[in-house]
Deep mutational scan, measured.
Amino acid sequence: NKFNKELQWATWEILNLPNLNEEQVKAFIDSLKDDPSQSANLLAEAKKLNDAQA
Rank of each mutant, 00 (worst) to 15 (best):
Ala44Lys: 15
Leu15Lys: 13
Asn21Gly: 08
Leu7Ile: 14
Asp30Asn: 12
Ile29Thr: 05
Lys26Val: 08
Glu13Ala: 06
Ala40Asn: 13
Ser37His: 07
Lys48Val: 10
Lys2Glu: 15
Leu42Met: 07
Ala54Thr: 13
Asp30Met: 12
Ala44Phe: 10
Ala54Glu: 10
Glu22Val: 11
Glu22Met: 08
Leu49Tyr: 05
Gln24Ser: 02
Ile14Gly: 01
Glu22Gln: 05
Asn4Gly: 05
Lys33His: 14
Asn4Met: 05
Ser39Glu: 02
Ile14Val: 06
Asn50Phe: 01
Gln53Leu: 11
Glu22Thr: 13
Leu49Arg: 05
Leu49Asp: 02
Gln24Asp: 03
Asp51Met: 10
Glu22Asn: 13
Trp9Thr: 09
Asn4His: 14
Leu20Glu: 00
Ile14Met: 05
Trp9Ser: 07
Asn4Trp: 15
Leu42Thr: 10
Leu43Arg: 04
Trp9Ile: 14
Ala52Trp: 09
Leu17Gln: 05
Ala46Glu: 00
Thr11Ser: 08
Leu17Arg: 00
Phe3His: 08
Ile14Lys: 01
Ala27Asn: 13
Asp34Leu: 14
Ala40Glu: 09
Val25Trp: 03
Asp34Lys: 15
Val25Lys: 15
Asn21Asp: 10
Thr11Trp: 05
Lys2Ser: 15
Pro18Gln: 08
Asp35Gln: 12
Gln53Arg: 02
Ile29Lys: 03
Phe28Trp: 03
Asn50Ala: 04
Gln8His: 04
Lys5Met: 06
Leu7Tyr: 11
Leu32Phe: 04
Lys2Pro: 09
Asp34Pro: 02
Ser31Glu: 12
Lys47Trp: 07
Leu32Pro: 00
Pro36Arg: 03
Leu32Ala: 04
Gln8Glu: 15
Asn1Ser: 02
Asn1Gly: 07
Asn41Gln: 14
Phe3Ser: 03
Pro36Ile: 12
Glu45Ala: 12
Glu6Gly: 03
Phe28Ser: 01
Glu22Gly: 08
Gln53Ala: 05
Ala40Pro: 06
Ala40Ser: 14
Trp9His: 14
Asp35Trp: 06
Ala46Val: 02
Gln53Val: 07
Trp12Val: 10
Lys47Ser: 07
Lys5Asn: 11
Leu42Asp: 01
Gln8Ser: 04
Glu23Phe: 12
Ser39His: 15
Asp34Arg: 11
Glu13His: 06
Leu20Tyr: 00
Ile14Glu: 01
Leu20Ile: 05
Val25Tyr: 06
Pro36Ser: 04
Ala40Ile: 08
Ser37Tyr: 06
Lys26Gly: 06
Leu15Met: 14
Leu42Glu: 01
Phe28Met: 04
Glu23Tyr: 10
Asp35Ala: 09
Asp34His: 11
Trp12Asn: 14
Pro18Val: 10
Glu6His: 08
Asn19Tyr: 13
Ser39Arg: 08
Leu49Glu: 03
Ser31Ile: 12
Pro18Phe: 06
Ala46Asn: 00
Ala44Ser: 14
Lys48Leu: 07
Trp12Tyr: 10
Glu22Lys: 13
Trp12Met: 14
Asn19Arg: 04
Asn4Tyr: 11
Asp51Val: 09
Phe28Lys: 00
Leu7Pro: 03
Gln24Met: 04
Leu32Glu: 00
Asn41Gly: 08
Lys47Met: 12
Lys5Glu: 15
Ser31Gln: 11
Ile29Val: 13
Leu7Ala: 11
Asn50Val: 01
Asp34Met: 15
Lys48Arg: 10
Trp9Tyr: 14
Asp35Lys: 06
Leu42His: 04
Val25Gln: 13
Asn4Glu: 15
Lys33Ser: 11
Asp51Leu: 12
Lys26Met: 11
Val25Leu: 12
Asn4Asp: 15
Lys5Asp: 15
Glu22Tyr: 09
Gln38Pro: 01
Ala40Arg: 15
Gln8Asp: 04
Gln8Gly: 04
Glu6Tyr: 09
Ala10Glu: 02
Lys26Phe: 07
Asn16Ser: 11
Gln8Ala: 13
Lys2Trp: 13
Asp51Arg: 08
Ala54Met: 10
Ala46Thr: 01
Leu15Asn: 14
Asp35Ser: 07
Asn41Pro: 06
Lys33Ile: 06
Glu45Leu: 10
Gln53Trp: 06
Leu49Pro: 00
Lys26Glu: 05
Trp9Glu: 15
Trp9Met: 15
Asn21Pro: 02
Leu42Trp: 06
Glu13Gln: 13
Lys5Gln: 15
Ser31Gly: 10
Ile14Asn: 01
Ile29Gln: 03
Leu7Lys: 03
Ser39Met: 15
Leu20Gln: 00
Ala27Trp: 14
Asn1Lys: 01
Lys47Gly: 04
Glu45Trp: 05
Lys26Pro: 00
Thr11Lys: 09
Asp34Thr: 13
Ala52Asn: 10
Asp35Asn: 07
Leu15His: 11
Asp30Pro: 00
Ala52Pro: 02
Glu13Ile: 08
Asn21Ile: 08
Ala27Leu: 10
Lys5Tyr: 12
Glu23Pro: 05
Lys26Gln: 09
Ser39Tyr: 15
Asn21Arg: 13
Leu7Val: 14
Leu17Ser: 02
Gln53Glu: 05
Leu49Trp: 04
Ala27Ser: 07
Lys2Ala: 15
Asn50Thr: 01
Asn21Met: 12
Glu45Thr: 09
Ser37Thr: 08
Val25Gly: 03
Asn19Asp: 07
Lys33Thr: 12
Asn21Trp: 06
Gln38Val: 05
Ala54Tyr: 10
Asn19Met: 08
Thr11His: 03
Gln38Tyr: 04
Pro36His: 03
Leu17Pro: 00
Asp51Ser: 11
Lys26Thr: 08
Asn1Phe: 00
Asp51Gln: 13
Leu20Ala: 00
Ile29Glu: 02
Pro18Met: 08
Gln53Asn: 08
Asn41Tyr: 15
Asp51Ala: 12
Asn19Pro: 00
Glu13Leu: 05
Trp12His: 15
Asn4Leu: 06
Pro36Asn: 03
Asn16Ala: 12
Ile29Trp: 03
Leu15Trp: 06
Val25Ala: 12
Thr11Arg: 07
Trp9Gly: 04
Ser39Leu: 13
Leu7Arg: 02
Phe3Gly: 07
Lys48Asp: 02
Phe28Val: 02
Ala46Trp: 02
Asn21His: 13
Lys48His: 10
Asn19Gly: 04
Glu13Gly: 04
Ala44Asp: 11
Gln53Thr: 05
Asn4Thr: 03
Ala54Phe: 10
Ala54Asp: 15
Asn1Ala: 02
Asn4Pro: 03
Asp30Arg: 10
Glu23His: 11
Leu20Met: 02
Gln24His: 03
Ile14Ser: 02
Ala52Met: 08
Asn21Leu: 14
Pro18His: 09
Ala40Asp: 06
Ile29Arg: 03
Ala44Leu: 13
Glu13Tyr: 07
Lys26Ile: 11
Ser39Thr: 09
Leu7Phe: 10
Asp30Glu: 12
Ala52Phe: 13
Phe3Trp: 11
Lys2Asp: 15
Ala27Lys: 11
Asp30Phe: 09
Asn19His: 11
Leu17Thr: 01
Gln24Lys: 01
Glu6Ala: 03
Pro18Lys: 09
Lys5His: 13
Glu13Trp: 05
Gln38Ile: 09
Glu22Leu: 10
Gln24Pro: 00
Leu20Asp: 00
Trp12Glu: 15
Gln8Val: 08
Phe3Glu: 13
Glu22Arg: 10
Ala52Gln: 14
Ala40Tyr: 09
Glu23Leu: 11
Leu43Lys: 02
Lys2Gln: 15
Asn4Gln: 09
Lys5Arg: 04
Phe3Val: 05
Pro18Gly: 07
Glu6Asn: 05
Pro36Thr: 05
Lys33Pro: 02
Leu49Ser: 03
Phe3Pro: 15
Ser31Lys: 11
